[in-house]
Write a protein that binds this DNA or RNA. Structure first.
Lengths: 212, 212
DNA sequence: CGAATATACGGAGCATCGCTCCGCTTGGCA
DNA sequence: TGCCAAGCGGAGCGATGCTCCGTATATTCG
């Protein structure tokens, strides 16, 4: 599912050698172009960088987002592969683990110029890119969240999807707006996560605490 | 400044009558189309809705964002015109005032389909749209923030621009992603604002509190 | 009231996208 | 070596933001 079964660069042994090579070349070229011009870079540029034609790009990656997904697959995998205890430290509290995972996620989004932006643009079927992130990362975030809730360290009224999208959103413009510090605002959000539950802020119930 | 001196619909008495009328027609048509198809709607559609040609649109509003700015000008004005005490209630604490202003800002962004998204897309000179919002609203937010800081109700390490962009970002996808509740996450962010300062969360200093 | 002229209009057209289509090239195999 | 399917390249399509300029008309002046 999620549209990115796109032959994964050099994995497929049944393809012709030039096809396999081109897929990898394309991946490298895309990574280079994305780093240089952001993930919004025209597909034509990527084709040119790789020294192939438009057709070749689209044969390997049927749609632009598929290419983006493929380029960042490794890093999403890394993020998805840390259910608990990033570095094996079991002494950390669940909330600490949550914090460090979120920090890594934030770094990832902030580092890749325009990735966070692309995650949300409704244009050109970028929803598959979004779906990829949601499918892979929401479960992990769900575990981290639940553990912190169970430990009584955070409020229980924030769902994994809410938090994931919120973090992704906060990272938008990180490299674009000079004065905006995305990481800092993610920190503030996490602080709010930790304190909303025990005492509701100011004695003033937020509003519309819909659903669980 | 900010590129939106664009004749303001019907204000200019020196223009030809048909020009004045068309400007207003365009504004109405744009509002209708934005409501129906989001602020990303093609300029051609707006021209068609208004029953005028492309040239007319661009003569009145030199660039797409200028049109968007003009359409939402009234509401931005309303937001900008409330330095303190939304409804004259002086008994509220500064933090309450901040909260209610932010709630109105959030409602505004969430209501207009795609406005929050458009605020951040780097494409097609949308930075003028962003500039408009920043110029008008950051000062107000600055006052609200400072008052709350002075009252000791919120942490002092969040600047107006940070908060404004953060809120705008959190509203992205409000109407697009079914499960995402933007308002709720804005609440969480505000909760973090209130609690980060006094006691740093868990005894564990967040991380990299880069330059106060 | 009727002509003159600046002002405004309309929409064809340009450049840039994402993506498709199809004739040509080339790798892999007998 | 020769065959043919897998693969390739890039012209081309439709959409979009924005420009340009010949045409229509509101306004003014005799």
């Amino acid at each position: 599912m999620s549209s990115a079964d796109t032959s994964q660069a050099g994995g497929d042994r049944r393809k012709r050698s030039d096809a396999r090579r081109n897929a990898q070349t394309l991946l490298d070229a895309a990574a280079a172009v994305f780093a240089r011009a952001g993930v919004d870079a025209p597909v034509r540029d990527i084709a040119a960088e790789a020294g192939v034609g438009m057709g070749t790009v689209y044969r390997h990656f049927p749609t632009r987002p598929d290419l983006v997904v493929a380029v960042f697959r490794h890093q999403v995998d890394a993020l998805a592969a840390t259910p608990t205890g990033a570095s094996g430290e079991d002494a950390e509290t669940p909330y600490d683990v949550l914090r460090s995972w979120v920090a890594r996620f934030t770094d990832f989004l902030v580092t890749k110029h325009g990735l966070a932006e692309a995650l949300h643009s409704d244009q050109a079927g970028f929803e598959s890119l979004h779906a990829e992130f949601v499918d892979r990362l929401v479960p992990v975030l769900g575990q981290l969240l639940q553990a912190s809730v169970d430990a009584g360290q955070i409020r229980a009224d924030v769902r994994p999807l809410d938090l994931m999208i919120a973090i992704g959103n906060l990272c938008i413009g990180a490299g674009t707006f000079p004065g905006y510090r995305a990481r800092h605002m993610v920190d503030v959000l996490l602080a709010g996560l930790a304190h909303g539950a025990p005492a509701s802020t100011d004695g003033d119930e937020p509003r519309a605490r819909t659903g669980s």
